[in-house]
Design a protein around this nucleic acid. Structure first.
Length: 719
DNA sequence: CGCGACTATCTTTTT
DNA sequence: GATAGTCGCG
């Protein structure tokens, strides 16, 4: 407690009622939430089992768990705290309460690919496959679910023609998932909403249990999550949320700023605290990131400040290509490391899109720099792992059609197709048809050889299933791997599965160590696999440079941070350019990236980059232009790094910002009151010029007030 | 009936 | 450049 400042302490000691903490980056947000939990248990005497603590990412949940367990070393009942991601916690509750909603507790969790496959099939069945794109539909359905359309907002479902067909697909999709006894990620929250909405007695039970609810990164909640919480706290009103509107970066998942902006309306008498002192970064970094976020119109005004040293200016480097950019980063790491006493683990390389990691990885490898790419293993994308999981899933839930089809497709495709249509026609599950394949032999027009293939398969699965009732997940996993490596149908080797088998082993071991009721079942493992396992855990403390997307970096800090690929179309991403709302989210993402750094930030961009096998020329990101010049340091000589390429990498940025050029340009003609035309927003009038006339605040007839960067957005003067 | 070559589309970001 | 889906050949 002594390590906290007075405002932090005050927040921790206010226990009851709704509380919102607006916490800037690096202000000790996680410390506050973890200390508060410990204080509640150790000093106030609140029972750990009455506490519910929620996060959004697995990493954040893990981090919080570790910190609390460190602080409560000798306290034995700390694992009674319900702590985890929204999805993980509520999937557990749904397992307990599934009977109310009419599905079975052994449900399967459908991941993205599963959902997409279901949608593809529906499109085929409905003969719609040409007009609509399955990814778009997936996104829409997700949007519907996250916004609870249909539960509270029935009207919204009938809008345009497109929406109508999507609604239709949505219904089929729901039906299929129900028949397969499967939930997708969004369903976990949606069904919890159904549960609490239609079964008040169940809601009451959990209201009674969770007397104190804490939520980290509250700005990332979507309506579905927020509604679950609203219901849970409606009795005791002890809700403690921490968030920073400037770090809201999950809009694509339905997160909406309004949840944090309207907190005081949703919860009357809410106490609002602010944490504005940054303990993490140098003054230059704090100032520069404040400056960047000020370009957003939608924000709560905050004054983030620091007592830390001034530090170094933010470095900007223009590379000729993505290769050279990567080389520059690798060389910089080595040279900074030589000059300081920093270790590799103090460095992070952040990027907008996962795809950028390849080339950086390559250059680090060449220089023998140890690194770890977070979020890269992605088990669920590996073919053999998906095959393996398909068996596990069918063993737990034979109605899991996606998995069953995956297994069957290795065999006779045509027969599988026939089985599928027969299943639809008769309303019998695929699994049941195969179980009784003898009866359908003539309908399916198959010979004895084919028939026997299917029979032997189902026999194997059934054998595994019967054992599954007593065996733990590890035993079953080993059996499945034995089967897969026996070469009957697959060419897999044992070592293909070593890593996943390790995870199963770890899982079972950990469950056995738990005092009360560890869940060593196969279902438990699968649930954990999809909702809890963080594949990067093991790499956390090794001395390696961290590579990750900015999204993954949230909540972390590093001495030195490189942010790569600051180019228009990449960061901000191409698909965000169309609306100012999306651009603002990109800018918040950039803000998150900047504020990860303690000592130093290096921004890099490349003039050329290969995209889809084609060389493309990119202009520097608008975010680079937005950087206040007092805080930046432009490196335009490559000095010790590349001898040859000097000529090619003339600094583009320097060019654009050359003062003389700038004064001669037509942009100077931009004045207050001038009528202009913008290709996206139409006609407007300049209200104000900002940042040395680089930015115009324009009131558009159609789309309202917007900030336009004069060098990037082409404006035509109309008056 | 299964496999290999060809082409269309794709990339944000996470649970 | 990578992957999924389609088509044609053996």
């Amino acid at each position: 407690m002594n390590s906290l400042n007075s405002s932090q302490r005050k927040i921790i000691e206010t226990i009851n009622g709704p509380i919102l903490v607006l916490a800037g980056a690096g202000s000790g947000k996680t410390r506050v939430i973890t200390h508060r939990i410990v204080h509640m248990i150790q000093n106030i005497g609140i029972s750990p089992s009455n506490i519910l603590a929620l996060t959004f990412t697995k990493k954040a949940a893990k981090e919080m768990k570790n910190r609390i367990s460190d602080m409560m070393m000798n306290q034995t009942d700390f694992d009674q705290i319900t702590l985890g991601t929204f999805h993980s916690i509520f999937s557990n509750i749904l397992r307990e309460e599934s009977h109310w909603l009419g599905f079975k507790s052994n449900y399967t969790i459908y991941d993205h690919k599963d959902s997409e496959n279901v949608i593809k099939q529906i499109l085929q069945d409905l003969n719609l496959d040409r007009s609509l794109n399955y990814k778009e539909i997936k996104r829409k359905i997700s949007e519907y679910k996250n916004n609870l359309y249909g539960l509270f907002y029935k009207k919204k479902l009938i809008n345009h023609k497109v929406e109508e067909s999507i609604t239709k697909i949505y219904k089929f999709y729901t039906k299929r998932c129900f028949q397969a006894n499967a939930l997708d990620f969004d369903d976990i929250l949606l069904h919890t909403n159904y549960l609490f909405f239609y079964f008040p007695n169940v809601l009451k039970k959990y209201q009674k249990k969770f007397k104190y609810i804490l939520i980290d990164e509250y700005q990332d909640t979507n309506l579905s999550q927020n509604t679950v919480i609203k219901n849970l706290v409606s009795q005791h009103k002890n809700l403690f949320v921490v968030g920073d509107d400037a770090q809201s970066i999950y809009g694509f998942r339905g997160a909406h700023l309004s949840n944090i902006l309207n907190f005081h309306l949703d919860y009357k008498n809410a106490k609002i605290f602010r944490l504005e002192q940054n303990y993490r970064s140098t003054n230059y970094i704090v100032q520069a990131s404040n400056n960047i976020i000020s370009f957003n119109k939608n924000q709560i005004l905050k004054k983030i400040w620091t007592n830390n040293e001034e530090g170094e200016k933010i470095k900007i480097y223009c590379a000729s290509s993505e290769e050279e950019e990567a080389q520059y980063i690798a060389c910089s790491i080595l040279s900074i490391k030589r000059k300081t006493n920093l270790q590799f683990e103090n460095f992070a390389i952040l990027y907008r899109a996962k795809i950028q990691s390849h080339i950086i990885e390559y250059s680090l490898k060449k220089k023998n720099i140890p690194y770890h790419i977070y979020g890269s293993i992605s088990f669920e994308n590996r073919k053999e792992i998906r095959d393996f999981l398909a068996y596990l899933r069918v063993i737990v839930n034979p109605n899991d059609e996606e998995s069953l089809l995956r297994i069957l497709k290795k065999r006779n495709q045509k027969t599988v197709k026939n089985i599928l249509s027969l299943s639809k026609e008769k309303g019998i599950t695929v699994y049941n048809i195969i179980q009784n394949i003898e009866n359908y032999k003539s309908l399916l027009r198959i010979n004895n050889k084919t028939k026997n293939k299917f029979i032997s398969l189902i026999f194997t699965i059934e054998k595994l299933r019967i054992n599954a009732e007593q065996d733990n997940a590890y035993v079953i996993a080993k059996n499945v791997i034995n089967f897969l490596t026996k070469k009957n149908y697959y060419n897999y080797k044992n070592e293909d599965f070593q890593s996943i088998l390790d995870y199963v082993f770890q899982y079972v071991k950990k469950q056995k160590e738990l005092k009360n009721h560890g869940d060593t079942s196969l279902f438990g493992f699968l649930r954990c696999f999809y909702l809890e396992i963080d594949e990067d855990i093991n790499h956390h403390k090794e001395n390696k440079v961290s590579l990750m997307t900015i999204h993954l970096s949230k909540g972390l800090e590093f001495s030195i941070v490189f942010i790569a690929g600051l180019e228009e179309n990449l960061f901000p991403s191409k698909s965000s350019l169309s609306t100012s709302f999306k651009i603002e989210e990109e800018r918040r993402l950039f803000y998150v990236a900047l504020t990860r750094a303690q000592k130093k930030v290096v921004l890099t961009y490349a003039k050329h980059r290969f995209i889809w096998g084609k060389k493309k020329e990119n202009t520097p990101s608008r975010f680079i232009h937005e950087m206040n010049r007092n805080f930046i340091d432009i490196e335009n000589h490559h000095k010790h790094i590349l001898e040859k390429k000097k000529i090619h990498s003339l600094n583009h940025f320097h060019h654009v910002n050359d003062n003389k050029n700038y004064e001669n340009s037509k942009y100077l003609k931009m004045k207050k009151g001038i009528k202009v035309f913008h290709k996206n927003f139409g006609l407007g009038i300049i209200v104000e010029l900002q940042n040395q006339n680089q930015i115009a605040l324009i009131k558009f007839q159609q789309s309202g007030e917007k900030r336009i960067f004069l060098k990037l957005d082409k404006l035509v003067i109309c008056s």
